[in-house]
């Protein structure tokens, strides 16, 4: 069956093209433009070609060393967040009530951290973990454990990771819970008839049925944690030293602190490409394993 062709239809696409150009295309091209130039202020720009990129990807240079340090820190942070939040989220989702008043109560309670703005979360933890007046900080120190996120890198990391777990585990829980609720009762009844242990039920029914929502949860949590900025910035400001200076924090330091637009632009392009690549690889592998299962 042939469909009538009418090229006037392209006019209908124009508003979207204009909108996307203003909101995405032009800003991105500006960044690309910056990344191949050097600026000395006063709106003066000089052509630098691929100079920034070469420097950035060479760890022996000043900029490259700084970039890779921040990159490994960010990857470690994302890995820790995923390793804690995903199993914890699944675990909590499995223990949530399936009916009665407890459902609404626990869902509301779980959604609360998700509703709090990033900088407020940062402020809450900044105060909560302080060793002098913070409930957590004072309590831990009171137990005789030396804990000061402003001084020791380990304490800073523990605080920042704990904060992320506090803020975002609920998201994983809610997604998993939705996945679990979608499993018909007959599966559990059949598993009972088949004599399955609760571990076998988890492996054979619950985990496979949660696969799709888990893919989404892991993707969201990776992107968010890999791009995290506000919360650690409020709590530790990237310190002590550079211990919690993640890529985004470093990027802002270069761009707005030192006003090195060229370096910052090159860095943000590479940063962006890393996020895209990781997400694409992850998504491609999970969806391929699913479609393989389908064949």
């Amino acid at each position: 069956m042939s469909k009538p062709l009418d090229n006037r239809a392209w006019f209908l696409v124009l508003p979207v093209v204009a909108l996307v150009a203003f909101s995405a295309l032009i800003p991105v091209m500006t960044v690309v433009n910056y990344s191949v130039q050097d600026s000395f202020g006063n709106n003066e720009f000089f052509w630098n070609g691929t100079g920034w990129f070469k420097e950035l990807l060479d760890p022996s240079t000043d900029l490259g060393g700084r970039f890779f340090d921040a990159l490994w820190r960010t990857l470690l942070f994302s890995a820790l967040c995923l390793l804690i939040e995903v199993p914890l989220g699944i675990g909590v989702a499995l223990t949530l009530p399936r009916k009665g008043w407890g459902v609404a109560a626990s869902l509301v309670l779980l959604a609360l951290p998700l509703l709090i703005p990033w900088n407020v979360v940062g402020t809450i933890w900044q105060v909560f973990a302080r060793r002098d007046i913070g409930l957590l900080g004072a309590a831990v120190n009171g137990l005789g454990i030396e804990y000061n996120y402003a001084q020791t890198p380990l304490a800073a990391w523990v605080t920042v990771v704990a904060m992320d777990v506090w803020h975002w585990t609920s998201l994983v829980v809610l997604l998993c819970y939705a996945g679990l609720r979608a499993i018909p009762d007959a599966y559990y009844q059949a598993a009972k008839v088949d004599g399955a242990s609760s571990w076998a039920v988890f492996r054979a029914i619950q985990l496979p049925k949660m696969q799709r929502v888990l893919t989404i949860a892991i993707l969201l949590r990776f992107m968010d944690s890999f791009m995290i900025y506000t919360e650690p910035f409020v709590v530790t400001g990237g310190g002590p030293g550079n211990a919690t200076t993640f890529l985004s924090i470093d990027l802002v330091k270069i761009a707005l602190g030192q006003f090195d637009l060229g370096k910052a632009a090159a860095m943000s392009i590479v940063y962006n490409l890393i996020v895209l690549t990781v997400c694409w690889v992850f998504f491609a592998t999970t969806t391929r394993s699913q479609s393989e299962a389908v064949q």
């Binding site: 018909p184 007959a186 009844q189 059949a190 008839v193 054979a204 029914i205 496979p208 049925k209």
Partner: peptide
Amino acid sequence: QVFQFPVVYDT
């Protein structure tokens, strides 16, 4: 027991 809707373990 065999149920109204077929139950198979997907994976």
